[in-house]
Design a binder for these strands. Sequence first.
DNA 1: TCCTTTTTGTTGTAAAAACAACAGACTTAT
DNA 2: ATAAGTCTGTTGTTTTTACAACAAAAAGGA
Lengths: 219, 219
Amino acid sequence: MNKYIDILKHTTMFSGISESDIQTMTSCLNANFKEYKKGEYIFRQGEYLDHFCVLISGSVHIQSDDYWGNRSIVSQVKPSQMFGESYAVSGSSAVLTDAVATSDCVVAFFNVKKLMTVCPHACSFHSAVIQNLLIALTHKNRALMQKLTHISKRTTREKLISYLSNESKLNGSNSFSIPFNRQQLADFLSVDRSAMSNELCKMRDEGLLTFDKNNFTLL
Amino acid sequence: MNKYIDILKHTTMFSGISESDIQTMTSCLNANFKEYKKGEYIFRQGEYLDHFCVLISGSVHIQSDDYWGNRSIVSQVKPSQMFGESYAVSGSSAVLTDAVATSDCVVAFFNVKKLMTVCPHACSFHSAVIQNLLIALTHKNRALMQKLTHISKRTTREKLISYLSNESKLNGSNSFSIPFNRQQLADFLSVDRSAMSNELCKMRDEGLLTFDKNNFTLL
DNA sequence: TCCTTTTTGTTGTAAAAACAACAGACTTAT
DNA sequence: ATAAGTCTGTTGTTTTTACAACAAAAAGGA
């Protein structure tokens, strides 16, 4: 468990909390750590969560498949990021999405009720963590909004431009790599893969950008 | 100011807080109330917020217009709902959307910093409000996710079905009214108005639903 | 290394959406 | 009551997308 503290102290939720307090907190919040193989589900649509998740290592996709088998990737989770908290905090509502390991990974689980109720050990940092959680949630909110602006665009090209220029901005460079392969990017932008692939190549031929696998450069 | 307490005590953020404590809180959080005429902007893309907003009366749309003039309506705010908090809490980032009054309305503003830092008057309910805020944010998060599932659908018909059946579920009835006219619904679902209107009429002719203005019935 | 599987690009066709333009119904203000 | 403006439905055309099918390239395993 100790080996995970290094990751946890870099998460938004434990920001400003000392290492020893994090240690205390992990037992106080009923923390447990699980390993998942690539392809395994951390949780599934329809389940109820009473713990929220923090990714320690690996990569997780938040996604949902509809009745007709169309997949929609809501977001990609990177190490030290939190997920599932929106369902866990108001535990009465079922999860709307699946969480799938896209590589072997380790996930930390924290009990929400124990976080939200007064600690019998009088942990002074409960409220600090709750504040951090609040901030983390506003970040997620803005990320969701950002994604909405991408897929609100009418054409595949506009969606690509919107997404890629945002990624470029986030990376602070016109060269960057994305965490998706073509099919996943298409599922993320809600478009057809082959049509998107075609559009990307057209854009390359027009001199708008270059790419090699998942490395892109905007020109 | 007193006349607004009745609304505030029904908001998620003041849930479980007594009327007199809300009163105390309004001064502690630097609350101020402003009136807006239909069409006026509460805030605009690019601004920085240090207060978050609660709608007291009227109706507000969170929306953004892109370079080409395409409007995207992110969400509709109803009385007692909160908005702008994602930008205010992490005040360093600029607002991504406009907030526009779609009818005459009254908006309450609360200072975020004063909420998040320890109160000099030792208000015991700060942490309760922060917890409430956390819950409100998870609700918004889920609403954004829900919207994502609607506009992730490939065809206009699927988007309509996804949105309308969700509204029906939220209203607990197959008859309900929506807070949008046709143009606004199209901007909300990111589709062309005339094409959407056309599709709605086809669906009506096929016996899937009936509608009159913004009142719909699913069959 | 060779074979299998996955990923990516390419093309043609059918379906759907965007766009534009307009008419009628309904609102609103004077 | 009338005129101006807005909202909604309708139609035809153009553009874009989805879908299907396939080939080449790349990755992974035996």
